[in-house]
Write a protein that binds this DNA or RNA. Structure first.
Length: 709
RNA sequence: GGCGAGGUAGCUCAGUUGGUUAGAGCACAGGAUUCAUAACCCUGAGGUCCCGGGUUCAAAUCCCGGUCUCGCUACCA
């Protein structure tokens, strides 16, 4: 394998609508950072880019929720996220943002070029239009009842209650948030990226060329998409938050966020080039550049299918690999900021790193554990107990302890200087130690090149373990007792300590990509400059000069105490509760806000209400609809007749549990076919803040068919 | 429901193209030691390789069926 001329490494752009948690860190940023630090130690030409993704519909939505502007949201989160990464040692060469004019220009040009070359298609479809406001309604300007959970304030692109991705057409009773009127359907034109034209290319490139050097999950998912038949994908939206469509007919439209966001990697590179007086172009256009995207598994399709097509069309290079990680769970459950079940990077930094007994060592402690349990091949799980055991048992006891005992002994037995080697006393143990260092270097290098960070880190720790074993066999402290009687004792001590010290120097080099703060501290202890950490020095056994005085021992890490772990676990439960209460409290708040935000449904007169025929019905039969996860087929007794009604509640109720229930039915709703079954009516449901559904039932059992007014 | 990836020791994970007795670290137990952050070192115990079939002289590995977890996707009036 020949060495690429240069590298361009990207980590998924964090969406700037909130804080990011340690799952994100473990998924993309930390492995990317390790890889980049390794490449830089190899003195490769490498640029590590990232930045905030600041467009898309969720950000204006967030703004509405917080009673502020989209700009204010991104201006709030961008710097926090950027600083969080710094505090955790994620060393981007540039942390850019997609709201930057340079990015607008880059994305705009990208689109124009594709459009001019005929690589895009336009399609005219019917979209919701607000006649009163005389404008097309972007997804976020349409509210209605979520078809998934029944939440009545769902937006046209997503229901915030259940998180379901929606399209406006799916909303029940859609209403414009601008005028409060029901929107009409009107034709609008949008640009599409015809992925179907590139099926052959993708098939060859992924399924042939990269079938074996990409991770199984990545190839598998791409295969699933390609074999499923690729469809043209809309690249524009009727929205005002984002990058204006820069061609004729694009008025009032912006680039769809998925189209603009990955181009952010390119704009970030451009900005970096400007800052450093470099040329950005070779990093994206020269075949000798190796491009690697670090992402989480939810992002595979964009980085392996869609963006590569865009890159190819625009004349850029393609990623050499996309080492997507699986997800990291937390104490038995999925991580979720909105549910309060997560550890935000910001939280960890404030609670551990910025404490008196914290410091950057605690950033490395977290990095160590996250890498030790990195979800490289399957979902993994963060537990505080695991964090404690991993840090105390391996990082402190094996690695840091070896460095510490080496330092203490060297000061006690070698006059605080690097002792000289007495070749006449060198034995097979000494030679084996030097060989282990070389072997480990080779292993770690190979593993890093294969993106196997977990295993690579393990090998580094293992080298410290070898150091402990070596010292145990040599027992310099025993030799020291006999120093008066054994004339060879000091020479043997010198040899042992010399070996241990050279091993420490190597450990600093090898551990540097994983634990950069620790490597720095080791350099400080050794009184050497950063250049010693160059990868080419790994495996050498003459890094510390004989006679050189080293600094007094200092602990590299502290142990994690039981009480700290208990406090974190308690905090986690408290967060969960607090979040629930917040969510419950937001219901009246949201209701109160509806008037000011214009989202209240239009006023109706009594006659309108009278049009709805509400009845009490009794569920007499219930069964799951085949091939549908959410649908239940219900037979409801209305007294005068029994009819079939479909309801999307299968995730919430078991069929056998709801037979006999009295429920409220919209009896005169137009019939609708779903999954081949006709539904005649609709069951009314109430929903609490946690998303749990409740039947709306009369307080006491009454005759089926009774009307409601 | 479709597709993809997983299910191996209490925990976190390895197990190349099928090939002796399925491995490592942590945790645990016993021993040894004291330079070191009660750290290190040595030894040990631990597994129905998710379940059920099949192919084979031989299956954790290949094939079929089932089941659980996660992701993408469909379904929601």
């Amino acid at each position: 394998m020949n060495t690429p001329k240069r590298y361009l490494i990207t980590a998924a752009l964090p969406y700037a609508n909130g804080l990011k948690h340690i799952g994100h860190l473990a998924g993309a940023y930390l492995p990317a950072d390790i890889y980049v630090r390794y490449l830089k130690a190899q003195k490769r030409d490498v640029v590590f880019v990232c930045g905030s993704d600041e467009h898309g519909t969720a950000i204006p939505i967030q703004a509405t929720k917080e009673g502020t502007t989209a700009q204010a949201i991104i201006d709030k989160y961008h710097p926090i996220i950027e600083q969080n990464f710094k505090d955790l040692g994620i060393a981007f060469d540039i942390y850019h943002r997609t709201s930057d004019p340079l990015h607008h220009e880059t994305a705009s040009d990208f689109f124009k070029n594709l459009e001019a070359k005929g690589d895009l298609e336009t399609k005219t479809t019917e979209q919701y239009f607000d006649e009163a406001a005389n404008t097309f309604l972007a997804d976020r300007y349409i509210k209605g009842t979520c078809p998934s959970c029944g939440h009545n304030e769902a937006y046209g692109d997503q229901c915030e209650k259940c998180g379901k991705t929606l399209s406006p057409e799916e909303l029940i009773n859609p209403v414009s948030t601008l005028s409060g009127k029901a929107p009409i359907k009107k034709e609008t034109t949008h640009w599409y990226l015809p992925l179907n034209r590139h099926e052959e290319f993708l098939r060859d490139w992924i399924l042939k060329d990269h079938a074996h050097d990409w991770r199984a999950a990545v190839v598998g998912q791409c295969k699933s998409w390609i074999e499923g038949g690729l469809q043209p994908r809309a690249v524009t939206r009727d929205l005002d938050w984002g990058i204006k469509v820069p061609v004729k007919g694009g008025e009032g439209k912006v680039l769809y966020v998925w189209f603009d966001a990955p181009i952010g990697y390119i704009s970030a590179t451009k900005q970096w080039a400007l800052n450093n007086n470099k040329d950005w172009a070779p990093y994206w256009n020269d075949k000798e550049t190796k491009l690697v995207h670090f992402i989480g598994k939810d992002n595979i399709v964009f980085h392996c299918i869609i963006f590569p097509v865009m890159l190819k069309l625009n004349g850029h290079i393609l990623p050499e690999n996309v080492p997507a990680n699986e997800f990291m769970n937390l104490e038995g459950d999925k991580m979720s900021t909105s549910k309060g079940w997560s550890i935000e990077m910001d939280d960890y930094i404030n609670k551990w790193i910025k404490k008196e007994n914290g410091g950057p060592a605690l950033a490395d402690s977290l990095r160590f554990y996250l890498t030790a349990i990195a979800p490289e091949s399957k979902d993994s799980e963060f537990t505080w107990k695991g964090f404690q055991e991993s840090v105390n048992g391996e990082l402190v006891s094996i690695f840091a302890n070896f460095v510490n005992r080496t330092w203490v002994l060297m000061h006690k037995l070698c006059n605080s200087k690097v002792p000289k080697i007495h070749t006449e006393f060198l034995d097979s143990e000494d030679l084996a130690l030097a060989q282990s260092v070389k072997d480990t270097t080779d292993k770690v290098t190979a593993l890093l090149e294969q993106y196997k960070f977990r295993e690579a880190q393990f090998e580094v720790i293992n080298l410290a373990r070898i150091g402990n074993q070596y010292m145990q066999k040599k027992e310099p402290w025993i030799l020291a007792k006999n120093i008066d009687t054994d004339p060879t004792a000091q020479a043997k001590i010198d040899n042992c300590m010399h070996g241990c010290l050279q091993l420490c120097a190597n450990l600093a080099i090898l551990v540097n990509p994983f634990l950069p703060f620790t490597a720095q501290k080791m350099c400080h202890l050794m009184k050497v400059v950063d250049r010693m950490l160059d990868w080419e020095n790994a495996g050498k056994f003459d890094l510390l000069k004989v006679g050189y005085t080293l600094r007094a021992p200092e602990l590299l890490f502290r142990k994690i105490e039981d009480e700290e772990i208990e406090a974190e676990l308690a905090q986690l439960q408290a967060n969960l509760k607090a979040k629930k209460i917040t969510m419950e409290n937001t219901i009246p708040t949201e209701a109160a806000n509806t008037e000011t935000t214009g989202t209240l449904k239009p006023e109706i007169v009594f006659d309108d209400f009278g049009k709805i025929d509400l009845r009490v019905g009794t569920i007499v039969e219930a069964k799951k609809v085949e091939k549908a996860d959410k649908l239940l087929e219900l037979l409801v007794d209305l007294g005068f007749e029994q009819r079939t009604i479909l309801s999307g509640i299968a995730m919430h109720f078991k069929p056998e549990d709801i037979v006999g229930k009295q429920v409220t039915i919209v009896a005169n709703l137009a019939p609708r076919k779903m999954r081949g079954i006709e539904s005649k009516g609709m069951i009314l449901m109430a929903e609490d803040a946690a998303g749990k559904l409740y039947f709306v039932s009369p307080s006491e059992a009454i005759a089926a068919g009774s009307s409601i007014a």
